[in-house]
């Protein structure tokens, strides 16, 4: 079979490989090279070494965006996972109407970030108007606005993953713990949580990377206002590229730094939570 299939390489692999080369491999390699260049379009690139990276160090807006993103990500990962897990625990107890609740909580996921941003802009500005404020009054408002929006959007998704994790726990395990006299808190801590660790790994991974890479919601909700103070990293990079000419190289260097950060977080997080998973 190996032999006869090998001849069909052009049919099976070539379309994907060609598209992947255009859509990923070339742009990725070119991106790394261009981060060491000065350019306005890709054809006039001139190699300048690490100059672009040095410029990032003195870019206060980037530093601010980095901390703002880190704080936003930590806050949203914690809130989303704790709330989604709690809701999942309650919705696996056979409460009447469970299916309806699940359907409702999951729905915001299907709506795109741009649309969500404007939906919440209306609601949050409406509430803030009672205090003569708007979302763009200070970066703290934009921060909490984004956290609330992300909770609303993602709790349902993570809840679905937690529910399937909880339902996969063998019933005997919990029964046995009960017969041994374990209290509900002990069961949660020593049986349920270790057993759903794979779900926790996945959900923290998804919420972490989603939070760190967030763009659409940020653009629609505040667009970085007031004066770029509510700008997340992805939006900062976008504005560096397209906001002012002559800074494309710096934008690309920021993008490389951004990529390395996302990759590091993904790898470290997966390592950390994987070690806590139990075999069964």
């Amino acid at each position: 079979m190996q032999h006869s299939l090998k001849k069909y390489f052009p049919v099976f692999v070539l379309p994907t490989l060609a598209a992947f080369t255009i859509g990923f491999i070339i742009p990725f390699l070119m991106g790394i090279y261009l981060s060491f260049c000065k350019f306005t379009t890709v054809t006039d690139a001139k190699f300048i070494g690490i100059g672009n990276y040095l410029k990032i160090l003195s870019d206060d807006a980037f530093g601010h965006a980095l901390w703002y993103t880190a704080a936003f990500t930590i806050m949203s990962v914690l809130l989303i996972n704790v709330l989604a897990f709690s809701v999942a625990m309650l919705l696996t107890k056979g409460i009447r109407g469970t299916n309806v609740f699940r359907t409702v909580f999951f729905m915001p996921n299907l709506i795109g970030g741009i649309v969500l941003g404007y939906v919440w802009q209306l609601l949050l500005n409406g509430v803030l108007a009672k205090f003569q404020k708007t979302l763009t009054y200070s970066s703290a408002y934009g921060f909490w606005g984004l956290v609330i929006l992300m909770c609303w959007q993602q709790i349902g998704y993570m809840m679905i993953i937690y529910i399937s994790g909880i339902q996969n726990i063998p019933g005997e395990l919990i029964e046995a713990a009960k017969i041994d006299g374990a209290r509900p808190v002990q069961i949660l801590r020593n049986v349920t949580i270790p057993m759903v660790m794979p779900s926790i790994t996945i959900c923290t991974f998804l919420t972490l990377t989603n939070g760190f890479k967030l763009f659409d919601q940020n653009l629609a909700l505040t667009n970085g206002e007031p004066s770029n103070m509510s700008e997340l990293l992805a939006l900062n990079i976008f504005n560096t590229f397209y906001g002012r000419t002559g800074y494309e190289g710096v934008g690309q260097a920021k993008a490389v730094v951004f990529f390395i950060l996302v990759a590091l977080i993904a790898v470290i997080q997966t390592r950390l939570t994987r070690t806590k998973e139990v075999q069964h």
Binding site: F20, I22, G23, F24, I26, P27, F28, M30, G31, L34, T41, V42, T209, F212, K213, F215, A234, I237, F238, F241, E248, G251, Q252, A255, V256, F258, F259, V262, A263, A266
Partner: peptide
């Protein structure tokens, strides 16, 4: 392919759009 999954879009957005 596996590697490409963790690369954020911002990394390739400029070069991809030009290409």
């Amino acid at each position: 392919f596996l590697f490409s999954m963790i690369v954020p879009f911002q990394m390739v957005m400029f070069t991809l759009s030009k290409l």
